[in-house]
């Protein structure tokens, strides 16, 4: 009963923090390998095939 009451008040869930940490690490690894410049390179051009033209 005590644990149920504690659950009702709320317990910190670990899953979102783990997911947040893993995602941040992935982003850092990707950024360190220079991916953002590749993303920018794509995003600065009109991708005609992306929008169904050409």
């Amino acid at each position: 009963m005590a644990s149920e009451r504690k659950k009702g008040r709320g317990q910190i869930r670990k899953a979102p923090f783990i997911l947040l940490t893993v995602s941040t690490l992935l982003w850092i690894v990707g950024a360190a390998s220079g991916e953002p410049s590749r993303v920018l390179e794509q995003a600065w051009q009109v991708c005609l095939s992306c929008i169904g033209i050409g």
Partner: peptide, 16 residues
């Protein structure tokens, strides 16, 4: 380049 920065950015948004 394996898309890790994109997956990571999406993961941060999704985790939040």
């Amino acid at each position: 380049f394996f898309g890790l920065s994109v997956i990571g950015a999406l993961g941060v948004l999704g985790a939040m």
